[in-house]
């Protein structure tokens, strides 16, 4: 069973970086991703929005595999700044999992 992490939820809430509210789950991002990453960004961002930290931890490798090339954001009809969101997740993992800041 997944548990909601208040720490992740409040980090997202307080952040002026992470914002996926406008995502309509259309899937253009996944379709144009040169890496063919299925998890990023749609599903993962939804997990983040509801504070499912376990799901984020399960996908650490995927989060660092993003090229930050920006192809997804360039084609996102909702103009979600996807690369900034991925960078937010890296920062969160670096600080909370890797003890790096």
């Amino acid at each position: 069973m997944s548990r909601v992490s208040s720490k992740l939820a409040s980090a997202v809430k307080c952040s002026d970086t992470f914002n996926a509210d406008a995502c309509m789950h259309c899937g253009v991002c996944t379709a144009v991703c040169p890496m063919g990453i299925e998890m990023l960004p749609r599903k993962l961002f939804r997990y983040v929005q509801v504070g499912l930290e376990d799901k984020v931890r399960e996908n650490i490798s995927t989060i660092y595999q993003c090229l930050l090339c920006g192809m997804c954001a360039e084609n996102c009809p909702a103009e979600v700044n996807i690369a900034d969101n991925v960078r937010f997740l890296r920062k969160y993992i670096n600080e909370n999992e890797f003890n790096l800041s």
């Binding site: 040169p34 890496m35 660092y64 595999q65 090229l67 930050l68 090339c69 192809m71 360039e74 084609n75």
Partner: peptide
Amino acid sequence: GKNTHCCGGPLESLFPSESHRIAGNR
């Protein structure tokens, strides 16, 4: 242009084989 395809370089330090796969595609 704005829809250019990545060279794969950003992954070289952490995921070299994925980086090479993307570079090959490009």
